[in-house]
Nucleic acid binder design. Structure first.
Length: 503
RNA sequence: GCCGAUAUAGCUCAGCUUGGUAGAGCGGCUGAUUCGUAAUCAGUAGGUCUCCGGUUCAAGUCCGGAUAUCGGCUCCA
Protein backbone atom coordinates (compact mmCIF):
# COMPACT_ATOMS: atom_id res chain seq x y z
CA UNK A 1 0.00 0.00 0.00
CA UNK A 2 1.15 3.50 -0.75
CA UNK A 3 -0.45 6.85 0.04
CA UNK A 4 -2.01 8.38 -3.08
CA UNK A 5 0.19 11.47 -3.01
CA UNK A 6 3.31 9.29 -3.03
CA UNK A 7 1.93 7.08 -5.81
CA UNK A 8 1.09 10.16 -7.85
CA UNK A 9 4.67 11.34 -7.63
CA UNK A 10 6.01 7.86 -8.44
CA UNK A 11 3.97 7.44 -11.63
CA UNK A 12 4.34 10.99 -12.88
CA UNK A 13 8.15 10.60 -12.54
CA UNK A 14 7.83 7.60 -14.85
CA UNK A 15 5.71 9.56 -17.32
CA UNK A 16 2.73 7.22 -16.81
CA UNK A 17 0.04 9.76 -17.66
CA UNK A 18 -2.84 7.28 -17.67
CA UNK A 19 -1.89 5.95 -14.22
CA UNK A 20 -1.76 9.51 -12.92
CA UNK A 21 -5.25 10.12 -14.31
CA UNK A 22 -6.58 7.01 -12.56
CA UNK A 23 -4.95 8.04 -9.30
CA UNK A 24 -6.45 11.51 -9.47
CA UNK A 25 -9.89 9.99 -9.94
CA UNK A 26 -9.35 7.68 -6.99
CA UNK A 27 -8.25 10.64 -4.91
CA UNK A 28 -11.43 12.51 -5.80
CA UNK A 29 -13.46 9.50 -4.74
CA UNK A 30 -11.82 9.81 -1.31
CA UNK A 31 -9.32 6.96 -1.53
CA UNK A 32 -6.38 7.55 0.78
CA UNK A 33 -4.01 4.85 -0.37
CA UNK A 34 -3.60 2.46 -3.32
CA UNK A 35 -1.99 -0.94 -3.69
CA UNK A 36 1.01 -1.54 -5.95
CA UNK A 37 2.38 -4.88 -7.09
CA UNK A 38 5.91 -5.73 -8.09
CA UNK A 39 7.22 -8.43 -10.44
CA UNK A 40 10.97 -8.22 -11.02
CA UNK A 41 11.64 -4.64 -12.06
CA UNK A 42 8.04 -4.07 -13.01
CA UNK A 43 5.94 -2.12 -10.53
CA UNK A 44 2.34 -1.28 -11.31
CA UNK A 45 -0.86 0.03 -9.86
CA UNK A 46 -3.29 -2.80 -9.26
CA UNK A 47 -6.16 -3.38 -6.92
CA UNK A 48 -5.23 -7.09 -6.63
CA UNK A 49 -4.83 -9.61 -5.21
CA UNK A 50 -5.48 -12.21 -7.92
CA UNK A 51 -3.18 -15.09 -6.98
CA UNK A 52 -0.61 -15.65 -4.20
CA UNK A 53 2.38 -15.47 -6.59
CA UNK A 54 3.29 -16.00 -10.24
CA UNK A 55 4.42 -19.59 -9.70
CA UNK A 56 0.73 -20.42 -10.06
CA UNK A 57 0.95 -19.40 -13.69
CA UNK A 58 3.07 -22.16 -15.17
CA UNK A 59 1.32 -22.28 -18.55
CA UNK A 60 0.33 -19.19 -20.42
CA UNK A 61 -0.33 -18.10 -23.95
CA UNK A 62 -0.90 -14.73 -25.54
CA UNK A 63 -4.03 -14.92 -27.65
CA UNK A 64 -4.53 -11.70 -29.58
CA UNK A 65 -3.88 -8.00 -29.72
CA UNK A 66 -6.57 -5.42 -30.24
CA UNK A 67 -7.08 -1.71 -30.08
CA UNK A 68 -9.22 -0.47 -27.30
CA UNK A 69 -10.30 3.02 -26.29
CA UNK A 70 -8.93 4.46 -23.07
CA UNK A 71 -11.67 3.86 -20.54
CA UNK A 72 -13.94 2.43 -23.24
CA UNK A 73 -14.89 5.82 -24.66
CA UNK A 74 -14.42 6.31 -28.38
CA UNK A 75 -13.56 9.99 -27.90
CA UNK A 76 -10.44 8.93 -26.03
CA UNK A 77 -7.17 7.80 -27.57
CA UNK A 78 -6.75 4.17 -28.48
CA UNK A 79 -4.43 1.88 -26.58
CA UNK A 80 -3.15 -1.51 -27.57
CA UNK A 81 -4.60 -4.27 -25.48
CA UNK A 82 -2.90 -7.66 -25.35
CA UNK A 83 -5.11 -10.61 -24.48
CA UNK A 84 -3.58 -13.63 -22.84
CA UNK A 85 -4.57 -16.48 -20.63
CA UNK A 86 -2.79 -18.53 -17.99
CA UNK A 87 -3.32 -21.84 -16.24
CA UNK A 88 -1.53 -23.65 -13.47
CA UNK A 89 -0.62 -26.52 -15.76
CA UNK A 90 -0.23 -27.27 -19.44
CA UNK A 91 -3.13 -29.68 -19.67
CA UNK A 92 -5.63 -27.08 -18.57
CA UNK A 93 -4.28 -24.58 -21.06
CA UNK A 94 -4.55 -27.16 -23.83
CA UNK A 95 -8.07 -28.04 -22.77
CA UNK A 96 -9.01 -24.39 -22.89
CA UNK A 97 -7.49 -23.90 -26.34
CA UNK A 98 -9.26 -27.01 -27.62
CA UNK A 99 -12.55 -25.67 -26.38
CA UNK A 100 -11.99 -22.49 -28.36
CA UNK A 101 -11.19 -24.59 -31.45
CA UNK A 102 -14.41 -26.58 -30.97
CA UNK A 103 -16.39 -23.39 -30.60
CA UNK A 104 -14.96 -22.09 -33.87
CA UNK A 105 -16.29 -25.17 -35.66
CA UNK A 106 -19.77 -24.11 -34.60
CA UNK A 107 -19.33 -20.55 -35.87
CA UNK A 108 -22.53 -19.73 -37.76
CA UNK A 109 -20.57 -18.08 -40.56
CA UNK A 110 -18.61 -21.27 -41.19
CA UNK A 111 -21.66 -23.53 -40.84
CA UNK A 112 -23.78 -21.16 -42.90
CA UNK A 113 -21.40 -21.69 -45.80
CA UNK A 114 -20.93 -25.42 -45.28
CA UNK A 115 -24.64 -26.12 -44.92
CA UNK A 116 -25.55 -23.70 -47.73
CA UNK A 117 -27.86 -21.65 -45.52
CA UNK A 118 -26.95 -18.08 -46.48
CA UNK A 119 -24.36 -15.98 -48.26
CA UNK A 120 -23.14 -12.40 -48.01
CA UNK A 121 -21.58 -10.94 -51.15
CA UNK A 122 -19.60 -7.80 -51.89
CA UNK A 123 -21.60 -7.19 -55.05
CA UNK A 124 -24.77 -7.00 -52.99
CA UNK A 125 -23.25 -5.13 -50.08
CA UNK A 126 -21.96 -5.70 -46.58
CA UNK A 127 -24.48 -6.69 -43.93
CA UNK A 128 -27.10 -7.78 -46.47
CA UNK A 129 -28.11 -11.43 -46.36
CA UNK A 130 -28.96 -13.69 -49.27
CA UNK A 131 -30.83 -16.73 -47.99
CA UNK A 132 -30.03 -19.87 -49.91
CA UNK A 133 -32.76 -22.51 -50.36
CA UNK A 134 -31.87 -24.43 -47.20
CA UNK A 135 -31.62 -21.31 -45.10
CA UNK A 136 -34.83 -19.97 -46.61
CA UNK A 137 -36.59 -23.19 -45.63
CA UNK A 138 -35.22 -22.98 -42.11
CA UNK A 139 -36.44 -19.41 -41.88
CA UNK A 140 -39.86 -20.28 -43.30
CA UNK A 141 -40.30 -23.02 -40.70
CA UNK A 142 -39.41 -20.61 -37.93
CA UNK A 143 -41.76 -17.99 -39.36
CA UNK A 144 -44.60 -20.52 -39.61
CA UNK A 145 -44.13 -21.57 -36.02
CA UNK A 146 -44.01 -17.92 -34.98
CA UNK A 147 -47.18 -16.94 -36.80
CA UNK A 148 -49.01 -19.93 -35.36
CA UNK A 149 -47.86 -19.17 -31.81
CA UNK A 150 -48.98 -15.56 -32.19
CA UNK A 151 -52.39 -16.49 -33.54
CA UNK A 152 -52.88 -18.82 -30.60
CA UNK A 153 -51.92 -16.03 -28.21
CA UNK A 154 -54.39 -13.49 -29.50
CA UNK A 155 -52.31 -11.56 -32.02
CA UNK A 156 -53.28 -10.39 -35.51
CA UNK A 157 -50.83 -10.20 -38.40
CA UNK A 158 -49.92 -7.01 -40.29
CA UNK A 159 -47.90 -6.24 -43.41
CA UNK A 160 -46.41 -2.78 -43.98
CA UNK A 161 -44.08 -1.16 -46.55
CA UNK A 162 -40.31 -0.69 -46.44
CA UNK A 163 -40.25 3.05 -47.05
CA UNK A 164 -42.27 6.01 -45.89
CA UNK A 165 -42.32 9.75 -46.35
CA UNK A 166 -39.66 11.54 -44.41
CA UNK A 167 -42.36 13.53 -42.61
CA UNK A 168 -43.52 10.34 -40.93
CA UNK A 169 -40.07 9.90 -39.40
CA UNK A 170 -40.12 13.53 -38.28
CA UNK A 171 -43.44 13.00 -36.53
CA UNK A 172 -42.25 9.81 -34.88
CA UNK A 173 -39.05 11.45 -33.67
CA UNK A 174 -36.86 8.87 -35.37
CA UNK A 175 -35.14 11.51 -37.47
CA UNK A 176 -34.13 13.40 -34.34
CA UNK A 177 -33.30 10.51 -32.09
CA UNK A 178 -32.38 7.72 -34.45
CA UNK A 179 -31.34 9.63 -37.56
CA UNK A 180 -27.70 8.57 -37.49
CA UNK A 181 -28.82 4.95 -37.92
CA UNK A 182 -31.11 5.74 -40.86
CA UNK A 183 -30.17 5.70 -44.54
CA UNK A 184 -30.34 8.95 -46.40
CA UNK A 185 -33.52 10.02 -48.12
CA UNK A 186 -34.55 9.24 -51.69
CA UNK A 187 -36.75 11.52 -53.69
CA UNK A 188 -39.96 10.32 -55.27
CA UNK A 189 -42.01 12.90 -57.18
CA UNK A 190 -40.17 15.66 -55.31
CA UNK A 191 -41.08 14.20 -51.94
CA UNK A 192 -38.42 12.77 -49.62
CA UNK A 193 -38.86 9.15 -48.54
CA UNK A 194 -36.74 7.07 -46.18
CA UNK A 195 -36.12 3.38 -45.59
CA UNK A 196 -37.66 2.20 -42.32
CA UNK A 197 -35.42 1.47 -39.32
CA UNK A 198 -38.46 0.41 -37.28
CA UNK A 199 -42.00 -0.75 -37.92
CA UNK A 200 -43.83 1.16 -35.21
CA UNK A 201 -45.06 4.21 -37.16
CA UNK A 202 -46.77 1.92 -39.66
CA UNK A 203 -48.59 -0.01 -36.96
CA UNK A 204 -49.73 3.31 -35.56
CA UNK A 205 -50.97 4.18 -39.03
CA UNK A 206 -53.08 1.03 -38.99
CA UNK A 207 -54.37 2.01 -35.55
CA UNK A 208 -55.26 5.52 -36.61
CA UNK A 209 -57.12 4.26 -39.67
CA UNK A 210 -60.11 3.46 -37.48
CA UNK A 211 -61.74 4.66 -34.26
CA UNK A 212 -61.14 2.60 -31.14
CA UNK A 213 -63.02 1.83 -27.96
CA UNK A 214 -61.67 0.73 -24.59
CA UNK A 215 -63.71 -2.46 -25.03
CA UNK A 216 -61.49 -3.84 -27.82
CA UNK A 217 -58.26 -3.55 -25.86
CA UNK A 218 -55.73 -4.97 -25.73
CA UNK A 219 -55.04 -4.81 -29.47
CA UNK A 220 -52.10 -7.04 -30.39
CA UNK A 221 -50.59 -6.61 -33.84
CA UNK A 222 -47.54 -8.48 -35.06
CA UNK A 223 -45.43 -8.39 -38.20
CA UNK A 224 -42.27 -9.96 -39.51
CA UNK A 225 -41.04 -6.53 -40.53
CA UNK A 226 -37.81 -6.01 -42.45
CA UNK A 227 -35.95 -2.90 -41.36
CA UNK A 228 -32.73 -1.24 -42.48
CA UNK A 229 -30.27 0.41 -40.14
CA UNK A 230 -26.87 1.91 -40.74
CA UNK A 231 -24.24 -0.04 -38.85
CA UNK A 232 -20.64 1.06 -38.79
CA UNK A 233 -18.46 -1.21 -40.88
CA UNK A 234 -16.48 -2.56 -37.95
CA UNK A 235 -19.65 -3.66 -36.19
CA UNK A 236 -20.95 -6.04 -38.87
CA UNK A 237 -20.75 -9.71 -37.98
CA UNK A 238 -22.21 -12.54 -40.06
CA UNK A 239 -25.92 -12.88 -39.34
CA UNK A 240 -25.55 -11.42 -35.87
CA UNK A 241 -25.08 -7.82 -36.87
CA UNK A 242 -26.39 -6.78 -40.28
CA UNK A 243 -27.77 -3.76 -42.09
CA UNK A 244 -31.05 -5.24 -43.24
CA UNK A 245 -32.95 -7.54 -40.90
CA UNK A 246 -36.40 -8.81 -40.13
CA UNK A 247 -37.78 -8.19 -36.69
CA UNK A 248 -40.44 -10.46 -35.23
CA UNK A 249 -42.12 -7.28 -34.19
CA UNK A 250 -45.39 -6.61 -32.43
CA UNK A 251 -47.15 -3.62 -30.94
CA UNK A 252 -49.72 -3.88 -28.23
CA UNK A 253 -52.13 -1.05 -27.50
CA UNK A 254 -53.82 -1.13 -24.14
CA UNK A 255 -55.23 0.81 -21.19
CA UNK A 256 -53.03 1.70 -18.24
CA UNK A 257 -54.80 -0.87 -16.05
CA UNK A 258 -53.88 -3.60 -18.55
CA UNK A 259 -50.20 -2.73 -18.86
CA UNK A 260 -48.79 -5.02 -16.22
CA UNK A 261 -50.82 -8.04 -17.29
CA UNK A 262 -49.92 -7.54 -20.93
CA UNK A 263 -46.23 -7.39 -20.09
CA UNK A 264 -46.67 -10.55 -18.07
CA UNK A 265 -48.32 -12.24 -21.07
CA UNK A 266 -45.51 -11.14 -23.34
CA UNK A 267 -42.85 -12.51 -21.01
CA UNK A 268 -44.80 -15.75 -20.84
CA UNK A 269 -44.93 -16.10 -24.64
CA UNK A 270 -41.33 -14.99 -24.87
CA UNK A 271 -40.06 -17.72 -22.58
CA UNK A 272 -42.25 -20.26 -24.34
CA UNK A 273 -40.69 -19.33 -27.70
CA UNK A 274 -37.14 -19.49 -26.33
CA UNK A 275 -37.88 -22.87 -24.80
CA UNK A 276 -39.17 -24.22 -28.11
CA UNK A 277 -35.80 -23.39 -29.63
CA UNK A 278 -33.94 -25.05 -26.80
CA UNK A 279 -32.67 -21.93 -25.05
CA UNK A 280 -32.57 -22.17 -21.30
CA UNK A 281 -29.47 -20.08 -20.68
CA UNK A 282 -30.02 -16.35 -21.06
CA UNK A 283 -29.54 -13.10 -19.18
CA UNK A 284 -32.37 -10.69 -18.49
CA UNK A 285 -31.81 -6.94 -18.19
CA UNK A 286 -33.99 -4.01 -17.32
CA UNK A 287 -32.76 -0.94 -19.19
CA UNK A 288 -33.58 2.42 -17.70
CA UNK A 289 -33.72 5.98 -19.00
CA UNK A 290 -30.88 7.01 -21.35
CA UNK A 291 -29.32 10.46 -21.75
CA UNK A 292 -31.22 11.24 -24.93
CA UNK A 293 -34.92 10.68 -24.25
CA UNK A 294 -38.44 11.95 -24.74
CA UNK A 295 -41.47 11.83 -22.45
CA UNK A 296 -42.05 12.87 -18.89
CA UNK A 297 -40.18 11.48 -15.90
CA UNK A 298 -43.52 10.40 -14.52
CA UNK A 299 -44.18 8.19 -17.53
CA UNK A 300 -40.70 6.69 -17.33
CA UNK A 301 -41.23 5.82 -13.68
CA UNK A 302 -44.64 4.31 -14.26
CA UNK A 303 -43.55 2.09 -17.12
CA UNK A 304 -40.30 1.04 -15.44
CA UNK A 305 -42.33 -0.10 -12.43
CA UNK A 306 -44.77 -2.03 -14.62
CA UNK A 307 -41.90 -3.91 -16.27
CA UNK A 308 -40.39 -4.70 -12.90
CA UNK A 309 -43.68 -5.88 -11.43
CA UNK A 310 -44.38 -8.23 -14.34
CA UNK A 311 -40.90 -9.78 -14.12
CA UNK A 312 -41.20 -10.27 -10.41
CA UNK A 313 -44.60 -11.89 -10.79
CA UNK A 314 -43.06 -14.25 -13.34
CA UNK A 315 -40.19 -14.95 -10.95
CA UNK A 316 -37.64 -13.83 -13.52
CA UNK A 317 -34.20 -12.86 -12.20
CA UNK A 318 -32.85 -9.73 -13.89
CA UNK A 319 -30.06 -7.20 -13.73
CA UNK A 320 -30.46 -3.46 -14.18
CA UNK A 321 -28.72 -1.86 -17.17
CA UNK A 322 -28.72 1.82 -16.23
CA UNK A 323 -29.24 4.32 -19.04
CA UNK A 324 -29.58 1.64 -21.73
CA UNK A 325 -33.27 2.23 -22.53
CA UNK A 326 -34.49 3.42 -25.95
CA UNK A 327 -35.25 7.11 -26.33
CA UNK A 328 -39.01 6.55 -26.00
CA UNK A 329 -39.16 4.20 -23.03
CA UNK A 330 -37.60 1.63 -20.69
CA UNK A 331 -37.20 -1.96 -21.81
CA UNK A 332 -36.60 -5.55 -20.81
CA UNK A 333 -33.90 -7.28 -22.86
CA UNK A 334 -33.09 -10.94 -22.99
CA UNK A 335 -29.62 -11.82 -24.22
CA UNK A 336 -28.62 -15.25 -25.47
CA UNK A 337 -25.00 -16.40 -25.54
CA UNK A 338 -23.28 -17.71 -28.67
CA UNK A 339 -20.70 -20.49 -28.75
CA UNK A 340 -17.79 -18.15 -28.12
CA UNK A 341 -19.52 -16.83 -25.03
CA UNK A 342 -20.49 -13.52 -26.61
CA UNK A 343 -24.01 -12.56 -25.67
CA UNK A 344 -26.48 -11.23 -28.22
CA UNK A 345 -29.57 -9.26 -27.53
CA UNK A 346 -32.60 -10.98 -28.97
CA UNK A 347 -35.83 -10.44 -27.06
CA UNK A 348 -36.84 -6.92 -26.17
CA UNK A 349 -39.98 -5.53 -24.55
CA UNK A 350 -40.39 -1.75 -24.52
CA UNK A 351 -43.06 0.49 -23.05
CA UNK A 352 -43.83 3.65 -25.01
CA UNK A 353 -45.85 6.65 -23.83
CA UNK A 354 -44.28 8.83 -26.46
CA UNK A 355 -45.42 7.70 -29.91
CA UNK A 356 -49.14 7.60 -28.95
CA UNK A 357 -48.75 11.23 -28.00
CA UNK A 358 -46.83 12.23 -31.12
CA UNK A 359 -49.33 10.56 -33.43
CA UNK A 360 -52.36 11.72 -31.47
CA UNK A 361 -53.64 8.20 -30.86
CA UNK A 362 -56.89 7.93 -28.94
CA UNK A 363 -59.63 5.58 -27.82
CA UNK A 364 -63.03 6.22 -26.35
CA UNK A 365 -63.15 5.30 -22.68
CA UNK A 366 -65.99 4.04 -20.54
CA UNK A 367 -66.62 7.67 -19.58
CA UNK A 368 -67.21 8.60 -23.20
CA UNK A 369 -64.11 10.80 -23.30
CA UNK A 370 -61.04 10.36 -25.52
CA UNK A 371 -57.96 8.81 -23.89
CA UNK A 372 -54.47 7.99 -25.03
CA UNK A 373 -53.56 4.31 -25.30
CA UNK A 374 -50.31 2.88 -24.00
CA UNK A 375 -48.11 1.22 -26.56
CA UNK A 376 -45.79 -1.73 -26.00
CA UNK A 377 -43.16 -2.64 -28.58
CA UNK A 378 -41.75 -6.12 -28.42
CA UNK A 379 -39.70 -8.60 -30.39
CA UNK A 380 -39.15 -12.12 -29.09
CA UNK A 381 -36.50 -13.51 -31.39
CA UNK A 382 -35.31 -9.95 -31.99
CA UNK A 383 -34.30 -10.32 -35.58
CA UNK A 384 -34.64 -13.51 -37.56
CA UNK A 385 -31.10 -13.07 -38.86
CA UNK A 386 -29.49 -12.82 -35.45
CA UNK A 387 -31.75 -15.44 -33.92
CA UNK A 388 -30.96 -17.92 -36.67
CA UNK A 389 -27.27 -17.13 -36.25
CA UNK A 390 -27.46 -17.99 -32.57
CA UNK A 391 -29.60 -21.02 -33.40
CA UNK A 392 -27.04 -22.38 -35.87
CA UNK A 393 -24.33 -22.20 -33.21
CA UNK A 394 -26.61 -23.54 -30.50
CA UNK A 395 -27.36 -26.71 -32.48
CA UNK A 396 -24.01 -26.75 -34.33
CA UNK A 397 -26.10 -26.93 -37.51
CA UNK A 398 -27.78 -30.20 -36.46
CA UNK A 399 -31.29 -28.77 -36.19
CA UNK A 400 -34.12 -30.61 -34.49
CA UNK A 401 -36.32 -32.47 -36.95
CA UNK A 402 -39.14 -29.91 -36.94
CA UNK A 403 -36.91 -27.13 -38.28
CA UNK A 404 -34.40 -29.16 -40.30
CA UNK A 405 -34.51 -27.84 -43.87
CA UNK A 406 -33.93 -31.39 -45.11
CA UNK A 407 -35.43 -34.01 -42.82
CA UNK A 408 -34.51 -37.08 -44.78
CA UNK A 409 -32.40 -38.11 -47.75
CA UNK A 410 -33.03 -41.19 -49.84
CA UNK A 411 -29.88 -43.11 -50.75
CA UNK A 412 -29.96 -45.95 -53.23
CA UNK A 413 -27.30 -48.63 -53.20
CA UNK A 414 -27.25 -49.24 -56.96
CA UNK A 415 -29.04 -47.87 -60.02
CA UNK A 416 -31.37 -50.87 -59.85
CA UNK A 417 -33.39 -49.20 -57.07
CA UNK A 418 -33.61 -45.75 -58.65
CA UNK A 419 -37.18 -46.10 -59.83
CA UNK A 420 -38.42 -47.38 -56.46
CA UNK A 421 -36.54 -44.54 -54.74
CA UNK A 422 -38.32 -41.95 -56.84
CA UNK A 423 -41.65 -43.52 -55.93
CA UNK A 424 -40.77 -43.32 -52.23
CA UNK A 425 -39.57 -39.74 -52.74
CA UNK A 426 -42.90 -38.69 -54.25
CA UNK A 427 -44.88 -40.51 -51.60
CA UNK A 428 -42.97 -38.86 -48.75
CA UNK A 429 -43.19 -35.40 -50.32
CA UNK A 430 -46.95 -35.89 -50.64
CA UNK A 431 -47.01 -36.87 -46.97
CA UNK A 432 -45.31 -33.59 -46.06
CA UNK A 433 -41.82 -34.90 -45.32
CA UNK A 434 -38.96 -32.61 -46.41
CA UNK A 435 -37.10 -35.29 -48.31
CA UNK A 436 -34.36 -35.20 -50.95
CA UNK A 437 -32.92 -38.04 -52.99
CA UNK A 438 -29.32 -38.82 -53.86
CA UNK A 439 -29.42 -41.28 -56.73
CA UNK A 440 -25.93 -40.57 -58.03
CA UNK A 441 -23.77 -43.44 -59.12
CA UNK A 442 -21.61 -43.36 -56.00
CA UNK A 443 -20.89 -45.82 -53.25
CA UNK A 444 -23.23 -45.87 -50.26
CA UNK A 445 -20.40 -44.80 -47.97
CA UNK A 446 -19.82 -41.71 -50.02
CA UNK A 447 -23.47 -40.68 -49.97
CA UNK A 448 -23.80 -41.36 -46.25
CA UNK A 449 -20.77 -39.22 -45.60
CA UNK A 450 -22.26 -36.31 -47.54
CA UNK A 451 -25.68 -36.60 -45.93
CA UNK A 452 -23.96 -36.83 -42.57
CA UNK A 453 -21.92 -33.67 -43.18
CA UNK A 454 -25.09 -31.82 -44.10
CA UNK A 455 -26.42 -32.98 -40.69
CA UNK A 456 -29.45 -34.61 -42.26
CA UNK A 457 -31.54 -36.13 -39.44
CA UNK A 458 -32.58 -39.29 -41.33
CA UNK A 459 -31.06 -41.25 -44.19
CA UNK A 460 -33.33 -43.68 -45.97
CA UNK A 461 -31.25 -46.49 -47.40
CA UNK A 462 -32.76 -48.50 -50.19
CA UNK A 463 -31.24 -51.66 -51.65
CA UNK A 464 -32.75 -54.73 -53.26
CA UNK A 465 -34.04 -55.96 -49.89
CA UNK A 466 -36.05 -52.83 -49.21
CA UNK A 467 -37.30 -52.66 -52.77
CA UNK A 468 -38.69 -56.23 -52.57
CA UNK A 469 -40.34 -55.62 -49.21
CA UNK A 470 -41.63 -52.13 -50.04
CA UNK A 471 -39.73 -50.60 -47.09
CA UNK A 472 -36.85 -48.22 -46.29
CA UNK A 473 -34.03 -48.71 -43.80
CA UNK A 474 -33.71 -45.66 -41.59
CA UNK A 475 -30.28 -44.48 -40.46
CA UNK A 476 -30.24 -41.69 -37.87
CA UNK A 477 -27.56 -39.02 -37.98
CA UNK A 478 -26.04 -40.41 -34.78
CA UNK A 479 -25.29 -43.62 -36.69
CA UNK A 480 -28.09 -45.75 -35.22
CA UNK A 481 -30.36 -47.79 -37.48
CA UNK A 482 -34.09 -48.23 -37.05
CA UNK A 483 -35.78 -51.46 -38.18
CA UNK A 484 -37.06 -51.34 -41.80
CA UNK A 485 -40.44 -49.65 -42.18
CA UNK A 486 -42.80 -48.59 -44.94
CA UNK A 487 -42.58 -45.01 -46.26
CA UNK A 488 -45.92 -44.26 -44.61
CA UNK A 489 -44.65 -45.50 -41.26
CA UNK A 490 -41.62 -43.24 -41.66
CA UNK A 491 -43.82 -40.23 -42.49
CA UNK A 492 -45.85 -40.89 -39.33
CA UNK A 493 -42.66 -41.14 -37.29
CA UNK A 494 -41.50 -37.77 -38.66
CA UNK A 495 -44.73 -35.94 -37.97
CA UNK A 496 -44.94 -37.37 -34.46
CA UNK A 497 -41.39 -36.28 -33.67
CA UNK A 498 -42.06 -32.79 -35.06
CA UNK A 499 -45.14 -32.36 -32.91
CA UNK A 500 -43.11 -33.13 -29.83
CA UNK A 501 -40.52 -30.56 -30.89
CA UNK A 502 -42.85 -27.59 -31.07
CA UNK A 503 -45.22 -28.61 -28.27
C1' G B 1 -15.80 4.79 -37.38
C1' C B 2 -11.04 3.39 -34.36
C1' C B 3 -6.52 -0.28 -33.42
C1' G B 4 -4.35 -4.69 -35.58
C1' A B 5 -4.38 -8.51 -39.29
C1' U B 6 -6.01 -10.77 -43.87
C1' A B 7 -7.70 -10.87 -49.36
C1' U B 8 -4.82 -16.39 -54.95
C1' A B 9 -10.04 -21.49 -58.79
C1' G B 10 -17.00 -22.82 -56.41
C1' C B 11 -14.61 -24.37 -51.20
C1' U B 12 -9.99 -25.03 -48.05
C1' C B 13 -5.22 -23.42 -48.82
C1' A B 14 0.30 -23.29 -50.96
C1' G B 15 3.26 -19.71 -53.87
C1' C B 16 5.05 -13.64 -51.62
C1' U B 17 10.78 -13.62 -47.44
C1' U B 18 15.01 -13.86 -52.29
C1' G B 19 9.91 -9.82 -58.58
C1' G B 20 10.80 -13.43 -64.33
C1' U B 21 3.33 -13.76 -67.02
C1' A B 22 -0.13 -19.29 -61.46
C1' G B 23 -0.25 -24.74 -57.96
C1' A B 24 -2.64 -28.75 -54.66
C1' G B 25 -6.76 -31.22 -52.35
C1' C B 26 -11.96 -31.21 -52.34
C1' G B 27 -16.04 -29.94 -55.47
C1' G B 28 -17.74 -29.62 -61.07
C1' C B 29 -17.82 -32.15 -65.86
C1' U B 30 -16.71 -36.91 -68.91
C1' G B 31 -15.84 -42.06 -68.74
C1' A B 32 -15.22 -46.70 -66.26
C1' U B 33 -17.23 -49.21 -61.95
C1' U B 34 -23.12 -51.20 -59.76
C1' C B 35 -20.90 -51.40 -54.81
C1' G B 36 -25.17 -52.36 -47.80
C1' U B 37 -23.85 -47.74 -43.22
C1' A B 38 -18.55 -41.40 -43.00
C1' A B 39 -14.53 -40.25 -49.35
C1' U B 40 -14.04 -46.18 -56.02
C1' C B 41 -10.65 -45.22 -60.13
C1' A B 42 -9.06 -42.48 -64.50
C1' G B 43 -9.37 -38.24 -67.54
C1' U B 44 -10.76 -33.08 -68.05
C1' A B 45 -12.44 -27.96 -67.58
C1' G B 46 -11.90 -23.90 -64.31
C1' G B 47 -8.14 -18.06 -62.06
C1' U B 48 -8.31 -9.88 -65.39
C1' C B 49 -4.15 -13.56 -58.17
C1' U B 50 -10.38 -7.98 -54.50
C1' C B 51 -10.13 -3.07 -57.04
C1' C B 52 -7.31 1.59 -58.41
C1' G B 53 -2.62 3.78 -58.81
C1' G B 54 2.96 3.74 -58.20
C1' U B 55 8.17 1.59 -58.46
C1' U B 56 10.55 -1.64 -62.20
C1' C B 57 12.78 -3.91 -68.54
C1' A B 58 9.28 -7.09 -65.74
C1' A B 59 4.49 -7.15 -60.02
C1' G B 60 0.19 -12.48 -57.38
C1' U B 61 5.00 -11.12 -55.04
C1' C B 62 7.58 -4.46 -53.39
C1' C B 63 5.04 0.64 -52.16
C1' G B 64 0.46 3.89 -51.61
C1' G B 65 -4.88 4.26 -51.61
C1' A B 66 -9.88 2.14 -51.76
C1' U B 67 -13.21 -1.89 -50.65
C1' A B 68 -14.48 -6.24 -48.02
C1' U B 69 -13.53 -9.80 -44.30
C1' C B 70 -11.39 -11.50 -39.45
C1' G B 71 -10.03 -10.30 -33.95
C1' G B 72 -11.13 -6.48 -30.56
C1' C B 73 -13.03 -1.34 -29.08
C1' U B 74 -17.35 1.69 -29.53
C1' C B 75 -22.44 0.98 -30.85
C1' C B 76 -26.76 -2.37 -31.33
C1' A B 77 -32.01 -6.42 -32.98
Amino acid sequence: MMPIAEALAFFSDQGEGYKVELLKDLEEKGEKAVSLYQQGDFIDLCRGPHIPDTSWLKSFKLLRVAGSYWRGDERNPMLTRIYGTAFSDKKDLKKYLNRIEEAKKRDHRKLGKELALFTIQDEVGPGLILWQPRGAMLRKLIEDYWKDAHYKNGYELLYTPHIARQDLWKTSGHLDFYGENMYSAMEIDEVAYQLKPMNCPFHIGVYNATKHSYREFPVRWCELGTVYRYERTGALHGLMRVRGFTQDDAHIFCRPDQLEEEIFNIIDLNLQVLKTFGFADYDVYLSTRPEKYVGSDEHWDLSTKALQAAMEKKGLAYAIDPGEGVFYGPKIDIKIKDQLGRSWQCSTIQVDFNLPERFGMTYTGQDGAEHQPIMIHRALMGSLERFIGVLIEHYAGAFPLWMAPEQARILNITDAQAEYCSKVYTELRQAGVRVEQDLRNEKLNYKIREAQMMKTPYMLIIGDREMEEGTVTVRKRNGDNLPPMTPQEFADLVSKECEQGTA
